[in-house]
């Protein structure tokens, strides 16, 4: 058999695949197990919900920005009040 034919045989063999008959059952088993998990304490699911809904994503960004802003104001107030007391 020449190399060209062997190469074609190689391609043909690589296109063949053996599949375990229970493969879909295994996948569905994992899917049903996932569906049975408690929803609100499931972190991957929470991340998914957040990433899918733009409103939730934007809301979280706004809350984060607000918390950051309040902390900055708090720190500035602290520094100023100490400065005033020391000065």
């Amino acid at each position: 058999m020449d190399k060209k034919k062997l190469y074609e045989l190689w391609i043909e063999k690589k296109h063949q695949v053996e599949i375990n008959k229970s493969f879909p059952d295994k996948v569905m088993g994992r899917v049903y197990e996932y569906e049975r998990r408690p929803r609100w304490f499931d972190i991957p699911r929470l991340i998914e919900i957040i990433s899918v809904h733009t409103i939730i994503k934007n809301g979280l960004v706004v809350i984060g920005a607000l918390v950051g802003f309040i902390r900055v104001i708090y720190v500035i107030t602290m520094v100023l009040s100490k400065g005033v007391l020391n000065g």
Binding site: K14, V17, I19, F23, P24, V27, M28, V31
Partner: peptide, 18 residues
């Protein structure tokens, strides 16, 4: 309809595994 996902698995298992 969770069970419908099986149709997608059965349809694509061969090319994905290969």
């Amino acid at each position: 309809d969770v069970e419908s996902f099986r149709l997608l698995v059965e349809r694509y298992q061969k090319p994905v595994i290969r």
